[in-house]
Design a protein around this nucleic acid. Structure first.
Lengths: 292, 292
DNA sequence: CGTACCATG
DNA sequence: CATGTTACG
C-alpha cells in the first residue's frame, strides 16, 4: 500500500481488522471502529460500470491516495470484480447490487470495519435498486448514495421527489444520533456555477430542474453543508462530463458528486477535493479529508 | 484496384457498367452481363457482423483477390457500412437485410451487373430473415445463401428441414434453365472429414446431425457437386472455428462454407479454395475460380 | 467468445 | 458515447 500523500493527520493506531476479521455482506453488526482514528480520508466515485472501469487502470490513482473509505456508485455488478478484490485486499467490502442486472448498484470499501452497515433506505422500490449504504463509525455515519436520475424528458422526476422526501427524513434521523457525512452522485447541479451550460439545461435536463435544485436547498437548510462549495464559494469545478461529443475535453461538465456534512462537523473538514484527472468513467472521484 | 493474382483466365472485355449504370436494390432487371466474360472469381464470406468485420482490415485481402462476385453472409446490418461503400466503389451492390435487426442478412457485390437479381426464396418466414440472393448472369445463376442454423439443442431443426425442402426445389428449378453456382455458409459439415471432432458433435451440435448431413447428400444426388471435396477428396480443411476457447489457434474447426455447382459445370471449376489466413470473423472466406 | 440488439445514463 | 443486458451463433 503506497504511503498516503498530504494527509492532514495520519492516525497511528492499528486498524480494527484484528477484532473484526470478517466483514459479512449481510449483517455486519460487530464492534469494529475503536473510535481512536483521528483523520479520515473518504473517496467517492461513480464508476459507470465497475468491471469496465477497473480495467482502465486509474484505480491505481485511487489506491495511491490511501483512502480510509471508498464509496463506488453505478457499479452495475453482482460481485466484486477480481481486480478489485486483489487491489483492495486489505479493505472490508460491502456490495449492494440492483435486482435488475447492469443497473445502478453501490459499493463501499473500508479500511476499518464499520460498527454497523445498513444496506438501503428502508423502501421497497429503492432498495431493489442498490442505491444506498449507511456505515456507522464511532464518530459519524457515512451515507453513500447513488441518487435516482430524473431521466430523459424528466420521466422519473416524481420518483426522484419520493426519494428526496424519504432521504431527507433518514438523514435528519441519523443526524440526531451522530453527525453524518453524506457522499456520492447526488444527480443535481445545485447552482448555475455548478454546470457549464445552465441556460440550455434549466428545467430541461435531469439534474438542473428547479425541483431538484430546490430539494437540495431544502436538505442543506435542514442543517447540512455542501463541503466543496463552503470551502470554495466561487470555484467552477465539475465532476461529470457526458461521454457524448467532446464534453470532457472542452470541460463541458456538471458538479453532481458531493460531500454533504452535518453543520456541526463542517469545521472538521480539512479538504474537499475533485480528482479531475482520474479517468475511466464519465464521472471523476471526489475526495474528503476530515478530522475527528 | 490491385491486379488480380493467379487468375486462370482474365477477361479482356469491359465490364457491363456502361450499359447498366445503376444497380437498383429492388428490381434490377436490365441486361447487364454481356456474356463475354470467360473467367469468374467468386468469393464468399460469413462475416459475422459486417460493421465489426470491415473495421478489422482483412477486407484488404479480399480486394487484392479482385473477385468478380463477393457474397457476404451474416451481415447483420440494414445498410452497407461506409467503409464497404468506399473500398468497393466499383462494385454493384445488393443488400438483403433481416426484418429483425442484428440478425442474419446477406449481401452481394458484383463487378459486372447481373442480368437479374432475386432477393429471397419466395417463402414468407425465410424471406423476412435475409438469407438468399440469386443473381442471374448470362452463363449461370449464382445463389448466395446463409442457411438457417439448427440452433442450440437443435431447436430449429424442423425449420431447417423446411428450408432444405424449399431450397432443393428452387435449385433444381433454376438448374433447368442455366447451370448454378451455389455458395455460402451452408451450416453443415457433410462428412467426418469436414470437422475436427465428429464424435463429440454427432447428432448433438447443429451442423453435424444425420438429418442435416442427409439433406446435403440429397442435394448433391440431385445433380450437384461439392467443388472443394471433388477437387480435394482427402483434404482436411475448415472454414469455421468457434470464437470460444482457442478453437482457431488449435484448428478445431468445421467446413461449413461451400461452393456447390451443377454437375455439368464441375469441369469448368479451376480452383476451389479456402482463405484460412483471413481473419475478422469466426468464418474464413472461400473462393472459386470458374471459366465459362 | 463475439456481434449484434436495447435500456440507461 | 459508453456500459451493461439479452439473443444468437
Amino acid at each position: 500500500m503506497p504511503k498516503r500523500k498530504a494527509s492532514p493527520c495520519e492516525s497511528s493506531v492499528p486498524s480494527a481488522e484484528a477484532i473484526a476479521p470478517i466483514f459479512t455482506r449481510v449483517k455486519p453488526s460487530f464492534v469494529a471502529d475503536a473510535g481512536e482514528k483521528k483523520s479520515w480520508r473518504i473517496l467517492s466515485w461513480n464508476v459507470a460500470g465497475l468491471r469496465a472501469c477497473v480495467k482502465k487502470n486509474d484505480f491505481e490513482k485511487i489506491l495511491s491516495e490511501s483512502p480510509d473509505l471508498i464509496f463506488l456508485g453505478e457499479t452495475k455488478c453482482n460481485e466484486w470484480p477480481p481486480l478489485i478484490e486483489t487491489k483492495f485486499k486489505d479493505y472490508k467490502k460491502t456490495l449492494v447490487a440492483s435486482q435488475k442486472g447492469g443497473y445502478a448498484g453501490v459499493g463501499l470499501l473500508s479500511k476499518v470495519a464499520p460498527i454497523k452497515v445498513i444496506q438501503g433506505i428502508g423502501d421497497e422500490e429503492f432498495d431493489k435498486e442498490g442505491r444506498l449504504i449507511i456505515a456507522e463509525y464511532s464518530h459519524f455515519f457515512f451515507i453513500g448514495v447513488y441518487v435516482p436520475n430524473s431521466g430523459r424528458g424528466l420521466v422519473n422526476l416524481s420518483k426522484r421527489e419520493r426519494w428526496e422526501k424519504i432521504f431527507l427524513e433518514k438523514i435528519q434521523d441519523l443526524d440526531k444520533t451522530k453527525p453524518v457525512i453524506y457522499g456520492g452522485d447526488l444527480n443535481v447541479a445545485h447552482s448555475e456555477i455548478d454546470l457549464r451550460n445552465p441556460e440550455s439545461n434549466r428545467n430541461k435536463t435531469a439534474g438542473f430542474t428547479d425541483q431538484e435544485r430546490g430539494w437540495f436547498t431544502d436538505l442543506l437548510a435542514a442543517g447540512f453543508k455542501d463541503t466543496f462549495r463552503t470551502l470554495h464559494p466561487d470555484e467552477k469545478a465539475y465532476t461529470y462530463w457526458s461521454y457524448i461529443g467532446s464534453a470532457r475535453e472542452n470541460d463541458v461538465g456538471w458538479r453532481l458528486d458531493y460531500y454533504v456534512v452535518s453543520n456541526r462537523i463542517m469545521e472538521k473538514v480539512k479538504t474537499s477535493g475533485i480528482m479531475r484527472t482520474v479517468t475511466g468513467s464519465d464521472h471523476c472521484p471526489v475526495i474528503l479529508d476530515i478530522t475527528f
